[in-house]
Design a protein around this nucleic acid. Structure first.
Length: 219
DNA sequence: GGCTGATCATAG
DNA sequence: CTATGATCAGCC
């Protein structure tokens, strides 16, 4: 699709200033009146517009470029409205995974952030795409992420997954990631035995993405 | 009002 | 079930 990252960025920049209604019309898809039942709709619209590999394939959105695409919902004052999901957390057979080989590290190594402005109660169609930017973690940011990841993974390995709350981690947090409370997966329990627990995912705190915005746009 | 824990849709 | 895309909603 794209020969290089510059071509991708050029395409992404063309989206800036468009409302979601305009982009949906260009893509020929119908807008939902609410995201309540289609929480990922905006992300999927942006994927479609940029020609990202659709579907549920693991790894990055543009594997040939090594780029992960993330939409970032912002209130009209420019502050992130939500945390950013990164990936599911491995709760079993994770002893051999290091930060360098982790999915979090891989996904966050290069991210194309696409901001979407709009307050929560604002009609989906009137929300506006902002200026995208490409992000590589700085050494300092990477250190923070790594430390959070290592602490969380150690607790998981020690069988303490159920004692990890979303309060843990400065930039990266662990939260449930599932269809509902009934979905279960295996994890290491307190006695070193297997337990059933809710699947968890890694998320970037909105305070962290807010800092990224500040650094990028000098806010 | 921000944040944590819970939840929604879809593909394979 | 796990993966993708995330936001909802009630508690503090």
């Amino acid at each position: 699709m794209y020969q290089n990252i510059d071509e991708l960025m050029q395409a992404a920049n063309q989206l800036a200033g468009l409302t979601l209604a305009e982009l949906a019309e260009r893509c020929g898809i119908i807008m939902p009146s609410s995201l309540r039942r289609e929480k990922g709709w905006i992300g999927q619209l942006i994927e479609l517009a940029l020609g990202a590999s659709a579907g549920s394939k693991p790894q990055q959105d543009f594997p040939e470029l090594g780029v992960e695409l993330k939409t970032l919902p912002l209130a009209n004052n420019g502050i992130p409205l939500e945390s950013t999901f990164v990936c599911t957390a491995p709760l079993l057979r994770q002893q051999h995974i290091s930060w360098e080989t982790s999915n979090v590290h891989h996904k966050l190594s290069t991210v194309l952030w696409v901001p979407v402005f709009g307050d929560r109660q604002q009609d989906i169609g009137t929300r506006m795409i902002g200026t995208p930017w490409l992000w590589h973690p700085t050494a300092e940011q990477e250190q923070i992420l790594r430390q959070d990841w290592e602490e969380i993974m150690e607790l998981i390995a020690l069988g303490k997954v159920e004692s990890i709350s979303a309060r843990h981690g400065d930039a990266l947090q662990l939260r449930p990631k599932a269809a509902n409370g009934r979905s279960l997966t295996q994890a290491i329990g307190s006695e070193g035995t297997l337990i059933q627990t809710r699947p968890r995912g890694f998320y970037l705190r909105s305070t962290f993405t807010r800092q990224l915005l500040r650094l990028q746009f000098h806010l």
